[in-house]
Write a protein that binds this DNA or RNA. Structure first.
Lengths: 221, 221
DNA sequence: ATAAATTTTTAGACAAGTCTAAAAATAATA
DNA sequence: TATTATTTTTAGACTTGTCTAAAAATTTAT
């Protein structure tokens, strides 16, 4: 069994490993968890004892198969709870993270399995991130950043890169939500801003925004 | 804000105060929380500093108005989550306590208010215990122990005194659930056992069982 | 009312998780 | 490659919540 703190470390390492491949640095973990490098070193030793990470002094850490399973189960719980909050309790997608950070540590296999069933076995959370299955595997969907599409191309909005509350609220204001079809009407060479069609509305968005929106290729019209 | 441990102490004192009136003893709290008296003394001092209990050395503790509010909110969360588990996730009433002990500490006013709404503003948990409202008040329903009814009297089963997993599973096996009408067919002087009619079934139950079942008076036939 | 039993508190210790400051190792640069 | 600069680790301290063992207060019983 793992403590709340241990679970948070495993989750942080899990997320960092998906970005960089290879070992994760002490400092990277410290930054992600808003803690100090010395605390990370201490905890990483404990996790190594428990055989959930591989750790060589000064060489960073890697999750073991066991560690990856534990971390994925925490992520699974986090994302299932996010779906619950949005679908059943009328939370907005920018409000769910903080609460899910707490709910993800509740220990009960039956709870999470029944929740999964209750929600209709969702595959993605409200931000478009994939939900690991019981075994910790996640289905990767081919996706591109909106900013990489060319003029007249279109796709379905399926996720965000930056899921900060501010960004999500900005998207709400603009009417940009998951599942909507977006077509590039024009690209401005000057500042790489885009003119897009979403639903029946025309919008102009900056490159920064377009670089934080994931799109699934949309075949046919 | 209160820690998990502080919330558990407040809840324990809250429940103990409902039983005994007057101050709650250090030992009683220690027993309820399966901890040691010395630990209770330490924590009670902290709670006193935070002005949620009144504490005089050797004289026991009492919740302040603030303390009672905090405790009631924890109890409210516990019982609402129990309803959720039974009504939405198909838990049996004997399985919910352990999970609710964890869920009751999740901090989010919106979460609990929306959960309340989602569940249709329930007034009682799956064991028949009342759910405190937002202000911590609970509606007391007049109830009697089944063992106090006389021959040919009847009532509606509305709660249990002992809500241990074993007792609840025993009731499941016998088909005794909340909301069912129970009629006393006969009382045995010898061992105070009862012959009862529940639904269309005749059962014989011991006095011990009858002393753990709460009944609401049933007017009319 | 005094002695014995019980309850409660104090004193000191420990584990988990964190921190600061300093030392050691690694990486970057001239 | 020698010297900075950066990263990482160690050492020691602190907080929270707990414990044991002993002292103090209260209650019970003779």
């Amino acid at each position: 069994m793992f403590t709340l703190s241990e679970e948070n470390y495993l989750k942080a390492i899990y997320h960092l490993e998906l970005g960089n491949d290879g070992g994760v640095s002490t400092n990277a973990i410290a930054e992600k968890l808003a803690t100090k490098a010395s605390s990370v070193t201490d905890m990483v030793k404990k996790l190594s004892e428990k055989e959930v990470v591989l750790y060589k002094k000064y060489k960073g850490v890697t999750l073991t198969v066991l560690g990856k399973t534990v971390a994925a189960s925490v992520v699974r719980k986090h994302r299932l709870w996010e779906v619950f909050l949005v679908e059943k309790l009328n939370f907005s997608w920018h409000e769910v993270h903080e609460v899910a950070e707490q709910l993800e540590h509740i220990k009960s296999a039956k709870l999470i399995n029944q929740l999964d069933r209750f929600l209709g076995f969702p595959t993605h959370d409200p931000h478009g991130d994939p939900i690991p299955d019981k075994d910790g595997n996640l289905k990767i969907v081919a996706k591109s950043l909106l900013s990489t599409l060319s003029k007249n191309e279109s796709g379905i909005c399926i996720g965000v890169d930056d899921s900060s509350s501010e960004f999500l609220q900005f998207l709400d204001k603009k009417g940009i939500t998951l599942g909507k079809k977006i077509t590039i009407l024009d690209k401005e060479d000057f500042d790489d801003s885009l003119s897009i069609l979403i639903g029946d509305k025309k919008l102009s968005i900056s490159n920064k925004i377009a670089s934080n929106l994931y799109i699934r290729a949309h075949t046919g019209q």
